[in-house]
Design a binder for these strands. Structure first.
Lengths: 189, 189
DNA sequence: GCGAGTGATGACAGAAGCTGTCGTCACCGA
DNA sequence: TCGGTGACGACAGCTTCTGTCATCACTCGC
């Protein structure tokens, strides 16, 4: 095996994504992933806790990014506006868009990967709630605001992805629009 | 092995929950569960797709219950009120409360089980959205309303569980209160 | 009653996921 | 130049999950 090539983690991620696309998630063995990255199966598990985790490396960074953005919002801002302001700033999207799309396709097609994605989302959700707590917002309010914020974020992102866009242009507007739509649904009693 | 005892599925569920409590989820093997239920490991997999699934047998019934309740709401009712009305009626809670509490404790302590719980929730969420769609509600509105409704349901349930209660008394009120709190957070821009 | 069909089960084999352990080798600092 | 450190390979082994086939209990039609 060719050792010390560097970039080990990224090599494994790329190999895994490619193989999942080529032959499907469940018909791909960890040994195959490792082999394509010039490693052994055992080494794969030194970089990732399990086979699913190889597609979720950026989760931690995203969480940090969001929390940092929240901390940068002017004090005294209400909970939901705080989250929306943070969302508008944060998405510098670390990974190339193409990678994210390929990744999303693979995840959507495989229940085990969807499960992992959901728990990553919950983890981020809990981090957001905690960040709001640190700003003096009450627990239940923080929790509700997080639910609302993530709902808005998803709708805005879906609409955003459906159109042609460059950079982050227009994303804050998409957030505002989605927030207004949510409010309309909430008040149409 | 003692065959044909009947109630096989339930025997496996009870054995699994007990063992998870006694020695933890990951230190319990499927073979042990099967043995306590007077079965072999292979038979376990004839009743449940995998080790996690043994704790989520009632998920399908709950989904059906909710969807049925939605269909019973008067036509023309807005999306969110429809969901809340359905939630207020549906929780006849099939399983004994004690079982649900033990189950919740085990799930909360084990990430693999949390993952499974999340995807079950998403499945129910999708069913709710579809049920709203069938009532002529637009896709995005249905989705937003489902997000809102589940957020309200969770808050109401948490508060509900924290107090002393008999039957379903007061649960509709808890839903109303939670909905009002959500609205307050949504509008406090 | 009695034989064929049906369904649940046991027994066995085996692939793949995941972990523990130990020795090896490249790199780094003193 | 030498010992420490960290990444890696090589095994061994347990567990999860699946495929396959024989067996046994129950049912239904005759």
């Amino acid at each position: 095996m060719a050792r010390w090539e560097g970039n080990t983690r990224n090599r494994l991620e790329q190999a895994a994504l490619a193989l999942f696309e080529e032959q499907g998630y469940d018909r791909t063995t960890v040994a195959q992933i490792a082999q394509r990255a010039n490693l052994t199966e055992r080494s794969f598990y030194r970089w990732f806790a399990d086979k699913r985790e190889v597609l979720f490396g950026g989760s931690q960074e995203l969480e940090t990014e969001f929390v940092t953005a929240i901390d940068a919002v002017p004090p005294g801002t209400p909970a939901l506006p705080t989250l929306l302001a943070a969302f508008a700033t944060a998405p510098r999207v670390f990974r190339p868009r193409e990678f994210l799309l390929r990744r999303a396709t693979v995840i959507a097609a495989n229940p085990p990967l969807r499960e992992r994605e959901l728990i990553k989302l919950v983890t981020i959700s809990e981090a957001l709630t905690t960040a709001l707590l640190d700003r003096g917002i009450g627990p239940e309010t923080a929790r509700l605001a997080t639910d609302l914020g993530l709902s808005v974020l998803r709708l805005a992102t879906e609409r955003w992805m459906a159109e042609e866009h460059r950079d982050g242009k227009g994303f804050p507007e998409a957030l505002s629009t989605a927030a207004a739509d949510l409010l309309a649904v909430a008040t149409s009693a």
